[in-house]
Design a protein around this nucleic acid. Structure first.
Lengths: 187, 187
DNA sequence: ATGTAGTTGTTGGTCGCAAGCAAGATGATG
DNA sequence: CATCATCTTGCTTGCGACCAACAACTACAT
């Protein structure tokens, strides 16, 4: 059922995808999605949770308890691999996120909260990297974190707009250099 | 009419905004928006063109024929000021962009094209900065451009998700430092 | 002032369809 | 056979896009 929804969301976006279509594409009747999830909003919320779990799991399998530059690069690799291996997941997830920004919704509030956490995580990586003497103390962890998150979301956005125009390998390789240049303490 | 549309798109997104509401909020009858623009798609396209013109004008009033680091910083300032002075324009514009990614549309194709141009512009600024000896020749103009655009779109995205959580002044000040650190040739 | 044409805006109505609900079918299990 | 969960079907309601006919106003020539 969720797989069917992902496919439809990629094609039409969440707003133009109907519960009827989802049920039928999944091989059931038109009414099932509705009776299972109560409402369209309810269904999208479940989908949100599912997406979130999947990404969190993927990310933490890369980052683990790393910190400093290593953690930042691990997150970059997590994104690179997720974009290529789970492209449809990614597309549907962001379509859901983007469209939830349009109106007041639970998803929208959750999103704001998650984004705060993302920023805190990256800031912590940097802070611990500075403590370990690996990252230059002139770096402001909170600001780097915002810029790092901007990179992540900005790349994903450009990828959504036109995936073919981007050479992901080259982009992530070059961004690694940028991170090293910026963070690494000079001897 | 366009002003009414902007207000409604901010509240509900494009998909949940109806031509009827737009006409009525603008002080006309329910049918006017339709008879003027032919279709909802037609209306949104006009809106897209309008947004695009406004942003282009704003940006070029900051960048002019600058190049190198100066041009990059001018673009950063253009964004900073647009975000604060024209917040509703920005919100509605990006909601329109985001929602047009969900399905095949003319807007979507135009968007892809515009983004290519954005990347070319920034890459050109960098290339000319390298030629002038101001920017380190180790910098890859195309890759910096992608990262720069990612910053722009990524900041806007975070701002759309939760504007209150961001201190725009601090963000843009710190990003200036980042740009200088990355690009400026070391003597 | 009057007839003609063009522009702008209004109104009534059709069509299609998504969401949601309720009643019932199906089918497994103890 | 009774119960519970799962799934289907018929139906209602509401509404958005779109269209066609028409009204009101303006311009301008005669």
């Amino acid at each position: 059922m969720f797989e069917a929804a992902i496919q439809l969301i990629i094609e039409r976006g969440t707003e133009r995808t109907t519960l009827k279509e989802i049920g039928e594409l999944a091989g059931y009747s038109r009414g099932l999605a509705h009776s299972r999830f109560g409402s369209k909003e309810g269904f999208l919320q479940q989908l949100f949770v599912r997406f979130d779990g999947r990404w969190k799991e993927h990310l933490s399998s890369y980052v683990g308890d790393k910190f400093g530059i290593e953690a930042v690069l691990a997150a970059v690799h997590a994104l690179r691999d997720f974009l290529t291996a789970e492209a449809s997941y990614m597309r549907a997830m962001y379509m859901l996120w983007y469209e939830s920004l349009g109106h007041d919704s639970k998803i929208r509030r959750k999103l704001a909260d998650h984004h705060r956490v993302y920023r805190e995580d990256a800031a912590r990586w940097v802070r611990r990297g500075i403590e370990a003497g690996e990252i230059a103390p002139t770096i402001n962890p909170e600001q780097f974190s915002i810029q790092f998150n901007a990179f992540v979301f900005g790349i994903i956005y450009q990828w959504l707009v036109n995936a073919e125009a981007l050479d992901l390998e080259a982009i992530f390789d070059d961004y690694e250099l940028t991170v090293q240049r910026l963070l690494r303490v000079k001897e």
